[in-house]
Simulated scan of single mutants.
Amino acid sequence: MLKVVSCGQQLLRVMFLVNTRRGNTHLRTLTCLRTGHVRTVACTSSLVQNYSVRLSFINRDSILFNYPAVKDIRKYSSNSSEAEPGQLNRLEYDKFCNETLESLYDYFEDVVEGCEHIRGCDVTFNDGVLTIQLGEHGTYVINRQTPNRQIWLSSPSSGPKRYDYVKNKKCWIYRHDNRSLHDILQEEISKITKNKLNFFDCAHSGR
């Protein structure tokens, strides 16, 4: 799977999935210089040995993709706004996701200000990634995953979760336990801060 995230005069950001030898799948983002028709870049991680990705630019929105795990060369486009049945289309996803993350960022700023008893607290929001540092309690990361039209949560308390937007509930749901993103944040952050919080005041909390 390959997804062009953004394309400019000189830079191209690409998201793609890689399979490890252990059978796990990881999402990777590459930023490439558009200095020619073909560029070769590499992705590394602790679980994945170096893999080279060869990108041949066709036009602003399409590329040819050649990856060692794929024997043939395939063409992908980044323009599609269509959705599978029951899923958000691209315009809906962008709107709901942006509203959710911006609302959470504003609320977490207030939460951090009220955590003077916890050393090392901080919150940042950059390029679709919301990072909340809670000192000795660890770091929460909430970020958009446009190719999947999801929001991903990395929690030091309960681990990683992937949330889909459920329209009839008006919130982001983790389908393995049917709990919402705001529900898990309400439970975990309240325990950590020992303050009275209400994440359900945030956008797209379902309430």
Rank of each mutant, 00 (worst) to 15 (best):
residue 9 Q to G: 11
residue 13 R to C: 09
residue 15 M to E: 13
residue 17 L to V: 13
residue 17 L to R: 11
residue 23 G to C: 15
residue 23 G to N: 14
residue 26 H to I: 02
residue 27 L to T: 04
residue 27 L to G: 02
residue 29 T to P: 06
residue 37 H to L: 13
residue 39 R to Q: 07
residue 42 A to Q: 15
residue 43 C to E: 10
residue 49 Q to T: 00
residue 49 Q to V: 00
residue 52 S to G: 06
residue 55 L to R: 01
residue 64 L to G: 03
residue 64 L to T: 03
residue 67 Y to S: 09
residue 70 V to G: 01
residue 75 K to A: 13
residue 76 Y to W: 09
residue 76 Y to H: 05
residue 77 S to R: 06
residue 78 S to G: 03
residue 83 A to L: 04
residue 83 A to Y: 06
residue 84 E to A: 09
residue 85 P to R: 06
residue 87 Q to Y: 07
residue 87 Q to M: 04
residue 88 L to F: 04
residue 88 L to K: 01
residue 90 R to K: 05
residue 91 L to K: 08
residue 94 D to R: 12
residue 98 N to E: 06
residue 99 E to K: 10
residue 100 T to G: 03
residue 101 L to T: 01
residue 104 L to E: 00
residue 109 E to T: 13
residue 110 D to K: 12
residue 111 V to N: 02
residue 111 V to W: 05
residue 112 V to K: 09
residue 113 E to D: 08
residue 113 E to Q: 11
residue 115 C to S: 04
residue 116 E to Y: 10
residue 117 H to K: 10
residue 118 I to F: 00
residue 121 C to N: 02
residue 125 F to S: 02
residue 128 G to A: 07
residue 133 Q to F: 10
residue 136 E to W: 10
residue 137 H to A: 06
residue 142 I to H: 01
residue 142 I to V: 07
residue 143 N to S: 11
residue 143 N to M: 10
residue 144 R to T: 11
residue 144 R to V: 08
residue 152 W to F: 05
residue 154 S to W: 03
residue 155 S to Y: 00
residue 157 S to K: 14
residue 157 S to N: 10
residue 157 S to P: 01
residue 158 S to L: 13
residue 161 K to Y: 04
residue 167 K to W: 03
residue 168 N to H: 14
residue 171 C to D: 04
residue 171 C to P: 01
residue 172 W to Y: 02
residue 175 R to H: 14
residue 177 D to P: 01
residue 177 D to N: 08
residue 178 N to R: 14
residue 181 L to Q: 05
residue 182 H to D: 03
residue 182 H to G: 02
residue 190 S to E: 08
residue 194 K to E: 12
residue 197 L to S: 00
residue 199 F to L: 03
residue 203 A to E: 04
residue 203 A to M: 12
residue 206 G to I: 01
residue 206 G to Q: 07
